[in-house]
């Protein structure tokens, strides 16, 4: 449609319906020469524009610095000597040292160290992501494209689950998993198995939103060509909603790798601890308290998440937007 209104008022030689703010009346474009008042008006405008832009940048930069500073400081602190960490606000270490990282590599009696912990994390995060994606896509397809008996009731129930706090379910789920024998399972059963059953309502919701925007024509013609519903799902639907699927996968990856309460309840063996529990463990078990070691351990544990994020930024952002904004 029309241009972004804020950005193009530098030249008066433009079609008159595009307007600036305030009470300037733009005269018909004159091919040559400008009246004095017009020149002054434009100058005023330019200045106001410049100030506005400057203010925006200023706020963005200041707030941005405040936002990012804790992380920058954290990285710097990992390289500092312990005594130096709290002595100044400067993130750059005066006497850089790798002690923090060296100590972070420590294993607890050979049983578990940061790398093993991270491997543990991904050993269940990846199955969880795959299972979540598959089950969510299947469910979304079912709800979005079909009318079946009980559709509305079940759909409403599903949406209601969005608002069900996990807090209410923790206790009885724990007891249920206990009956199944999944507590302390070596295969993280209590964490993985539920994801095969589309328990993340947010993703189903997001996929359904996305699906609603996909035109049905392709499916119709495929049906005419003789494809059954399963083939339609795999050959047509999935490719079309790929961006949303990728978003789901990325989000699930992030959330699961940050999950603390789940492993806290269901993982009992230190050798099987994931990174989140390990970071807490590294705080508790050593004598003395080396902040540089603790922060280094923390930093390493979130490295994969940072890398994944930077690699897939756009998908993350698109995904979130798709969920929040209809249509």
């Amino acid at each position: 449609m029309s241009n972004n209104i804020d950005n193009n008022q530098n030249n008066v030689d433009i079609t008159p319906e595009v307007n600036t703010g305030a009470s300037e009346k733009v005269a018909m474009a004159k091919p040559s020469g400008q009246s004095d008042t017009l020149k002054k008006a434009n100058k005023n405008l330019k200045r106001r524009r410049a100030i506005s832009t400057f203010m925006r940048y200023f706020v963005l930069i200041v707030v941005g610095c405040i936002m990012i500073y804790p992380l920058v400081w954290m990285v710097g602190a990992c390289f500092k000597q312990n005594s130096e960490i709290f002595s100044s606000m400067n993130p750059i270490p005066i006497k850089a040292t790798l002690d923090g990282f060296k100590n972070a590599m420590k294993s607890y009696g050979g049983n578990i160290n940061i790398w093993k912990a991270m491997l543990n994390t991904y050993s269940y995060v990846i199955p969880m992501v795959i299972l979540t994606v598959v089950s969510s896509v299947v469910t979304a397809y079912g709800f979005a494209r079909f009318k079946f008996i009980g559709h509305n009731v079940l759909f409403a129930l599903m949406m209601a689950m969005l608002f069900l706090p996990q807090v209410v379910l923790n206790v009885p789920q724990y007891m249920l998993f206990n009956e199944f024998g999944w507590i302390g399972s070596d295969f993280y059963l209590a964490l993985i198995v539920p994801t095969a059953f589309a328990t993340e309502t947010y993703f189903i919701f997001m996929l359904i939103q996305f699906l609603r925007n996909v035109p049905k024509e392709l499916e119709e013609s495929a049906k005419i060509d003789g494809c059954n519903v399963f083939q339609i799902l795999i050959k047509i639907i999935v490719p079309m909603i790929m961006p949303a699927v990728v978003s789901c996968a990325l989000f699930k990856f992030m959330w699961s790798s940050n999950d603390f309460l789940g492993p806290l309840l269901y993982v009992n063996t230190p050798a099987k601890y994931p990174a989140t529990i390990f970071v807490k463990l590294s705080m508790d078990s050593d004598a003395g308290f080396d902040w540089n070691r603790v922060l280094a351990t923390s930093l390493i544990s979130i490295m994969p998440n940072i890398l994944v994020f930077f690699a897939a930024q756009n998908q993350f952002i698109d995904g979130i937007s798709a969920g929040g904004v209809k249509g």
Partner: peptide, 10 residues
């Protein structure tokens, strides 16, 4: 009601 099959896991 074929669609029902898809929501069985859920």
């Amino acid at each position: 009601n074929i669609g029902f099959i898809f929501i069985i896991p859920w």
